[in-house]
């Protein structure tokens, strides 16, 4: 079940995400990226919000968050999260000419966390097909505890405990 859609109705095409078997893979992708962005969804609980803040602080990744989750960030004193709904950020990440959150241009890596399974499944599907970057496409990573076949890289279907081990592992490797 590692490389299968969590929701069985969501059947992907032949091009499927690489399974993240080691958190060092994610850390390495982030370090190699020149313009990463973290996208947080409307299902983010406190643990996800805390994690997003830690990740942002660790390597300076900007955060675009579903507005429903914005308050959770500001309640923790984190003011740098930018409100974009799932469909709005999906549309902007698709557009090669988007100026980005800071006006400095489009991103080359987008990490997704805190979404309903089928919501990020569909947003990632759109990006896989239409978010062109030069000769290729935007690299995407799903950090939710479910396998997302339309991402470039995805964690597999995981228990809550194993998921926490993995995302904390990413942080540890980034901080080294």
């Amino acid at each position: 079940m590692r490389g299968e859609s969590w929701q069985t109705a969501e059947i992907p095409g032949p091009k499927k995400a690489h399974v993240i078997t080691d958190p060092r893979i994610v850390a390495s992708l982030i370090k190699r990226s020149s313009r990463p962005i973290l996208v947080v969804g409307g299902e983010a609980d406190e643990a996800v919000v805390n994690y997003a803040i830690e990740l942002s602080k660790a390597v300076g990744i900007p955060i675009a968050t579903t507005p429903s989750t914005l308050k959770a960030f500001s309640d923790k004193g984190f003011k740098e999260a930018h409100p974009f709904s799932a469909v709005e950020i999906g549309e902007r990440l698709r557009d090669p000419d988007w100026e980005g959150l800071d006006g400095s241009g489009q991103y080359d890596l987008a990490l997704f966390i805190g979404f309903k399974y089928y919501v990020s499944w569909l947003i990632l599907s759109g990006l896989k097909h239409f978010a062109k970057r030069g000769d290729g496409y935007l690299t995407t990573i799903s950090l939710d505890p479910y396998y997302q076949p339309h991402a470039s890289w995805s964690l597999p279907n995981l228990t809550r405990e194993r998921w926490e081990e993995n995302i904390n592992g990413v942080l540890q490797h980034l901080r080294r």
């Binding site: 409307g42 429903s68 709904s85 799932a86």
Partner: peptide
């Protein structure tokens, strides 16, 4: 045409 994730949104 817009899809919202939550009722609040």
């Amino acid at each position: 045409f817009y899809a919202a994730e939550t009722k609040e949104e």
